[in-house]
Amino acid sequence: MAEENVNAAVNETPAETQTADVQPSGGGRGADDGQAAGGGDVSLLTEGLETVGDGEAKEGEEGAAEKTAVKEEASAPEVPEKYELKMPEGWTLDEEGLAELTPIMHELKASNEQVQAVADLYIRRMSAAREKQIADERETVKNWREELKNDAEIGGAKYEENLASVKKMLIKYGSEDFYNYLDDSSLGNYPPFVKVMVKIAKELEDDKFIPGGGAFSDDPASAAAKMIFDKSLKD
């Protein structure tokens, strides 16, 4: 009977007493702290550390950028106030052209060496173009002379004789320098021009006057003048 009373007393213990949770030490914030540590929530301490880290990172980036800018500035070419260029033999510096080019090169921050390289390139290209032009002109003159030699009217066996007549006429009514200029120029070898000169030379050679005294003159103008004045004096 005594055992039954003890069991009854045990069975009659309140449910709240039997199912009471055991609270961990620390005032019941263990679960919250665990969530902050394992669940990614930022605590006040962690947030402060992250802010300090961001500031140091930004300062590091700014420092690196500043060092890069200083390095680039140190390695940048020196831009002179006035460019001094050297021209090869036979070339003269275009001072006006350089004056127009200078502000453009200053805006590009070009050094004297860089502008000199541009000038050298320009000279090479201009020289090549000039050489090609001269070669083309020589080829054209060569073709013109071949055309005159084979011309049915002034070429063939009488080619050299016709040219000699033209030379004599040009020197007589012009000068030797005038003849040499025409002979060296493209005009002096231009087929239509040479043909006209040959015709004029032939006509002047054929128009010979015999004065009243019977003297022969190879100058038509002098012979004609003498005949006119001699006749007027006689009258």
Rank of each mutant, 00 (worst) to 15 (best):
residue 120 D to Q: 03
residue 229 F to W: 07
residue 133 Q to H: 08
residue 87 M to L: 13
residue 47 E to A: 13
residue 181 Y to K: 06
residue 88 P to T: 11
residue 104 I to H: 05
residue 206 D to N: 14
residue 64 A to S: 15
residue 206 D to Q: 14
residue 200 I to T: 13
residue 160 E to L: 00
residue 205 E to A: 13
residue 178 F to W: 05
residue 6 V to H: 08
residue 19 T to K: 15
residue 139 E to V: 07
residue 178 F to R: 01
residue 84 E to V: 15
residue 123 I to A: 02
residue 37 A to T: 00
residue 6 V to A: 10
residue 6 V to C: 05
residue 102 T to R: 13
residue 34 G to E: 00
residue 109 K to W: 15
residue 151 D to T: 05
residue 70 V to W: 07
residue 74 A to H: 09
residue 76 A to D: 09
residue 162 N to W: 01
residue 121 L to M: 12
residue 31 A to C: 03
residue 1 M to A: 14
residue 209 F to Q: 04
residue 112 N to A: 11
residue 174 G to W: 07
residue 147 E to N: 02
residue 37 A to V: 00
residue 32 D to R: 06
residue 120 D to W: 04
residue 98 L to T: 07
residue 197 M to I: 03
residue 199 K to Y: 05
residue 77 P to W: 13
residue 131 E to A: 11
residue 130 R to V: 10
residue 185 S to A: 12
residue 88 P to K: 12
residue 231 K to C: 06
residue 218 D to S: 09
residue 177 D to W: 11
residue 183 D to Q: 09
residue 110 A to P: 00
residue 27 G to L: 12
residue 202 K to Y: 08
residue 178 F to I: 08
residue 68 T to M: 03
residue 91 W to L: 03
residue 45 L to Y: 09
residue 40 G to I: 02
residue 101 L to P: 01
residue 85 L to Y: 08
residue 158 K to Q: 13
residue 228 I to M: 04
residue 213 G to H: 14
residue 97 G to F: 11
residue 125 R to F: 08
residue 220 P to W: 14
residue 195 K to N: 03
residue 231 K to A: 14
residue 210 I to L: 15
residue 193 F to R: 00
residue 105 M to P: 01
residue 96 E to L: 08
residue 45 L to G: 03
residue 142 K to R: 15
residue 139 E to G: 05
residue 47 E to H: 12
residue 183 D to P: 01
residue 171 I to C: 02
